[in-house]
Design a binder for these strands. Structure first.
Lengths: 206, 206
DNA sequence: GTCTATAATTCGATAGAC
DNA sequence: GTCTATCGAATTATAGAC
């Protein structure tokens, strides 16, 4: 695989992620993508096959490092059969996503908005996204179950779903007036994460 | 205005609401709408002018009765300068939306999903929706401020935003496996509402 | 108000030269 | 791998008969 190829592929994925995030899958045309990515239309089909396969590639590049980090933090948290607190679990869930925001300020909100958009895409896109995150979601539910054994699995499930919805909302709204997350300074992110964890831990225990 | 006209207009709006809810604005074509509504393509432009204006009409028919009910319940809650509890305020916020689900079982989830979809539509659609609900949102924030005077306005704002996000998520996921809202029986809705209010009130106070 | 017919564009996808 | 050129289908929107 030549350097040029990689650049072209990555360039297409990056632009597609941003446009999918802003306008959704149906609202984004391949011509929008190639125009901003400054590549040829045929290159998209050559590298990815179809628009839907391009979406798959975007989701994969986006989700895998996050899931990996989440699972690592979770494993670390459970070391020695410890039963972590709700706060610790939620912090492990939020950290990879939110710290990603701090790392690259240029596209700071793109990943977040893409995630938020994915959450509401119709089938079959929704299943593509859910598939990438399924492993991580199950693992978090399992450890939550051990921390809150008095709650039923179904209760934990819908509560955890609302936790994810809240995280996504905070990420999507970042930077907007009155949003929780106003700046991408590490301190601001840390502060926002703590407040969000407090808000949701209280709900998880209710 | 003849009966036929009204029926055609209402029919178009109803189908459009459902399709916008399921596939989003960009993912829905006017041909999808007229096909299911069994009306002529030109009728859409005759009655609404454009696809975006059709979206405006859908939002207006959808939002206005809900906002009206919300404000009425809120006024009732504040009668005699009372300072209602967080639980009472959230219940007033959730009731109109959730009880709507029970009323018409045929389209029980359409309104809910439409609302959820609207929340993430790109501009200028987002602003159209926000405009319809702005009055109600401000009123709720004001009464929340009086109930929780020790919290800053900006804190209340992002927390309230997460409350809305949670309500929308619950509505959108209704009927799915592991969702909070599984049935449209009044008792099930009541029970779900109480649990959701508990979850979020705890967070509001945190 | 409703219809047919169609204009004017844009879409995803592909063939084939280089 | 990258390009031009183009296909066939689908899109919103309109004109004009009834």
């Amino acid at each position: 695989m030549s350097t040029t190829t990689t650049d072209t592929k990555e360039q297409i994925i990056s632009v597609a992620e941003r446009l999918f995030a802003e306008r959704g899958f149906a609202g984004t045309t391949l011509r929008n993508v190639i125009s901003e990515a400054e590549v040829n239309l045929a290159a998209v089909h050559y590298h990815f096959g179809s628009k839907e396969d391009l979406f798959r590639a975007v989701v994969a590049r986006f989700a895998r490092p996050i899931v990996e980090q989440e699972l690592a933090l979770l494993k670390q948290l459970q070391a020695g059969d410890r039963v972590p607190s709700v706060e610790a679990i939620l912090t492990a869930l939020f950290k990879p996503g939110l710290e990603f925001l701090a790392q690259d300020k240029e596209f700071l909100l793109v990943h977040a908005k893409f995630m938020g958009r994915c959450w509401t895409e119709p089938e079959p896109l929704k299943s593509i996204v859910a598939g990438e995150f399924a492993l991580s979601m199950e693992a978090f539910l399992d450890v939550l179950q051990r921390t809150l054994p008095e709650q039923s699995r179904s209760q934990l499930s819908w509560k955890f779903d609302l936790v994810i919805a809240a995280l996504i909302r905070v990420q999507s709204e970042a930077g907007q007036p009155f949003a929780l997350l106003q700046s991408t300074e590490p301190e601001a992110i840390q502060e926002a994460m703590e407040q969000l964890v407090k808000f949701l831990s209280a709900g998880m225990r209710s």
